[in-house]
Design a protein around this nucleic acid. Sequence first.
DNA 1: AAGAGACTCAACCGCTTTGAC
DNA 2: AGTCAAAGCGGTTGAGTCTCT
Length: 347
Amino acid sequence: MGRAPCCEKVGLKRGRWTAEEDDILASYIAQHGEGSWRSMPKNAGLLRCGKSCRLRWINYLRDGVKRGSISREEDDLIVKLHATLGNRWSLIASHLPGRTDNEIKNYWNSHLSRQIHTFRRTYTAGNDTTITIDISKLSAAGKRRGGRTAGQSPKSSTKKHPEPETEPNKAKDASSPVTATSSVSSALQSDEARSAVVDPDQNQPNNSISGSHTSDGPCSQDETGPFFMDPIDQAGGLLEANSAMDQFGLWEADSSFNQIGHLEESQMEALLSNGVAMESGLTGVEPEGQVQVDDLLDMDWEGFAAHLWNEPAQSDMIQAAEPKTTTTGSDPDELDSFVSWLLSDAC
DNA sequence: AAGAGACTCAACCGCTTTGAC
DNA sequence: AGTCAAAGCGGTTGAGTCTCT
């Protein structure tokens, strides 16, 4: 059986659009408006699938589609929104005027998701608790190999809106963050990543996930605040997220790790015993310390992140996080306020 | 100079959602 | 309420391009 094709593909053209096709599509829509994508190509005289026409129009030909490099501000916003919304590209795109979901998705996959940069951060999580986490050498950040640079078009490109001459890429590769969800475990758990944290001088593993964040990130290093989810500092971000959720009353501090089902008891204990000071209510926690690399690497960060960010409104983690002794309660409005804060410039 | 590999991004694919009937 | 077509969405692919060796 199988699903019926969206259109009769026989005889239809595929691949890149030509300038002529673009003109035909644009002029047809100018006359008849959008919609009826299935019948449009036939009516317009295009040998294209309706879906292809729609995609071409939405991503390239439509008025207001912004071309050119993603700005620093847009980059920051994408990171924040992705931390909150996950891979809901169209939703993210709706917050960036002129940008399409496809563009943001490509940008995320090519620029942001795989970049883990050297980073070190000290964060005050609670009353008297400090977390120091370093993430470094976990990727070949800044090492750009081949590939079309932003703003370039293939020779065969028929772009209707040529890329404006924008500011140089300014080594985005060296400053862009990484996803807090899907890339976390793969990046941290790779052999490359593990070996990368060995100090070449001493041939000993660093006692911390070390790293170094370029200071032009959304939030600068050594920053403190209610929450920060700079995907560059995945581990730190996740820990901070935990604290932030606590602050917003989404769960209680001393039970926070227990709410995260993916963490094994032993992992939790190892993490805590190595000085990850989340909150003063945790036993055996030093007021200040660093996280052992392997303990962090062994954690199920992906599951952790998924719990934190995927479907937050439906998360059983959040629902199960009714404060025992309480902070501020877990009113749904607080989640809204949390998201609002995330999207604000407070970070 | 040439080949290999890394990288980007436009376009495609298939599943899900929406809305009309 | 059920069915179907259209539209929307996110994941994936692959051609084109660039850098490295």
